[in-house]
Design a binder for these strands. Structure first.
Lengths: 334, 334
DNA sequence: ACCTGAAACTAAATCGGTTTAGCAAATCTT
DNA sequence: AAGATTTGCTAAACCGATTTAGTTTCAGGT
């Protein structure tokens, strides 16, 4: 029942555990261990099914070969997709992934950060609530590599990978305008995030008179997103008389579409929509939903790259290689 | 830049690290450490922002306070939901969660198992590909707690939490029959999983003549689920003339619905459907999709409970507390 | 004055690896 | 044949905690 340790192998072959350790780490030749000895150790290790105790190795090397991934929620397919990409990429690089979800709660996020730090992760990838700059700064300053993705702290000097949300909003509005819409509405969230603010700014800036008035921009409470979004859609259509709506996230679009259908307005004839972020069902819905595709693979890849660069190259190394990825329109029928 | 260790605190207060360790672990009173001394240590620890090195602690205690969660894929909302539940529950119990996704690849699964074992996780929760009994058995026999969830190895003596899929299939068929369907089809996957087999058996057993012939049961390749599912639906409707279809998973239902709509048959009038597993959009689609709800919270809770019982009570302790949870119908409009 | 026992604390072993510094024997120089 | 290298290997420190088995000091009992 007891695990096989280096010592046991050493005893078995009558050599020191130093030798065994070196050989099993592939440094046998480097340390000029006799090939025969190496073969012997290797075979015994295999026979005894030796698996190094990573905890011990980690303590000794100071590296845990583990990354922490912190996201708002994992059932959000956007973060789910990023999580899956990151997990795959990490594994290829020999790193495990510890998962944490915040549900937009800064307190939970802080706890996660502290736990992961204590857990000696080698790096942290975080889509932050943007309410924990202090702690993230402290952790980063202490030398633990951090990469912010999807959401960043613009005022801080921390590496990040984000989407160009301002541009994204413009693309969405442009699409609706080009398809002939004259009075465009917007449903967004009351989250205090740069990404969100950028989307709203982008919308306001691109709208160029194609909105009745400022009431065309509806901000709903993220805690009651579903019911509030439905209300917002109703108001936009009934009171504001919009003929097009931009939804700030895929799930707002989902809620909105449900409401629009119930209202039995001519959709997408009288009211056309476009969503920030794609969703697997957007091409299954009839009509298919037009969306702005956020490049999840790119985000994952860039984040991992950025983190690895920090991990492998502790000293400064120009941390200002921030990445702003560009989203692209997937025009469908709405 | 250097982390604060027990030794540093010990030096600071001129005491041994034994004392410091005891106090910081709340065992000060137990070991009769002077209250004043305790207060002093606590305050210094706080001042220096001491965070114990978990790796060192883990090596010493032999426990990593980490659980491994292995699922086929995390973007599948079913597993996503379970993952989120498990993460929340674990955190409350003081455990971190290491995530691994297999994509139904037994080789990847085996790698994950070995890595997690080496990583000294305290327990493993796995929705297995059901092609790694050997390795899972070995790990479990070595004393590492394992709980199989969603998918189990019926022939093996390993604790599991699964859904009653046989019953589920019956409920789905019963619903369609009761709503007047006379010729019911089925679209399933070619996965060699008990859960899948049970669903198919359940369907065949409940159908009681309400199927034209055995061609009403279509099995599609899980690698090309989307295109094959569309073909299957087409055949069921055109060749078999079905008036009802049971889909073996929520995503098959999604693909199927898309195809049905394109075919412009009277839906759900002429062809009614029901899906194994719910999906957030099923209540957004018009018509709303009838589904069999799999109790994810229950699965998560039971799995964690079962794992904790093993972790806390190493000796035998009746491992035969397997749990089979019951799914429930969510009847909507299809 | 001597013994007992509790109070308050500590030295050292331990977990299982990695790594540095160095030793003994064999081989090569010249 | 003496000295210099190389080959092949090992002892012991180290990572930072936990934990066992004591030790010292002092008060109380007789």
């Amino acid at each position: 029942m007891k695990r096989v340790s280096l010592d046991m192998i050493a005893k078995e072959v009558n050599l020191s555990k130093t030798t065994v350790s070196m050989v099993l780490n592939g440094k046998g030749d480097l340390h000029k261990i006799n090939p025969d000895t190496q073969a012997l150790i290797l075979s015994v290790a295999k026979r005894l099914k030796f698996r190094p105790n990573m905890i011990a190795r980690n303590l000794s090397t100071g590296s845990s070969k583990t990354l922490a991934l912190i996201v708002p929620r994992i059932i959000d397919t956007y973060y789910g997709l990023i999580a899956e990409s990151i997990e795959q990429l990490s594994l290829k690089l020999g790193y495990q992934v510890l998962l944490g979800t915040t549900h937009e709660d800064p307190v939970k996020e802080k706890e996660l950060l502290l736990t992961f730090e204590a857990q000696q992760v080698d790096g942290i990838l975080i889509a932050s609530t943007q309410h924990n700059l202090e702690d993230i700064k402290t952790i980063s300053d202490a030398g633990l590599p951090v990469v912010l993705f999807d959401r960043h702290y613009p005022e801080a000097d921390l590496p990040y990978v984000v989407v160009d949300n301002y541009l994204g909003a413009q693309k969405l509005v442009k699409h609706l305008i080009e398809s002939g819409r004259k009075n465009i509405g917007y449903v967004g969230l009351n989250l205090d995030l740069t990404a969100i603010k950028d989307r709203q700014r982008g919308f306001e800036n691109a709208i160029e008179g194609r909105a009745k008035d400022s009431n065309n921009l509806k901000i709903v409470d993220h805690q009651h997103a579903k019911s509030d979004c439905r209300k917002a859609v109703e108001e936009l259509i009934l009171n504001q008389g919009v003929d097009g709506i931009v939804f700030e996230t895929h799930y707002l679009a989902l809620y909105g579409i449900a409401k629009i259908r119930e209202m039995e307005v001519d959709y997408p004839g009288a009211v056309s929509i476009a969503s920030f972020g794609d969703h697997e069902v957007f091409s299954i819905f009839r009509p298919e939903v037009t969306a702005l595709v956020l490049p999840v693979e790119q985000i994952a890849q860039n984040s991992i790259d950025m983190l690895m660069r920090q991990i492998e190259n502790k000293p400064g190394d120009d941390p200002h290689l921030n990445k702003i990825v560009e989203p692209s329109m997937k025009v469908r029928n709405t």
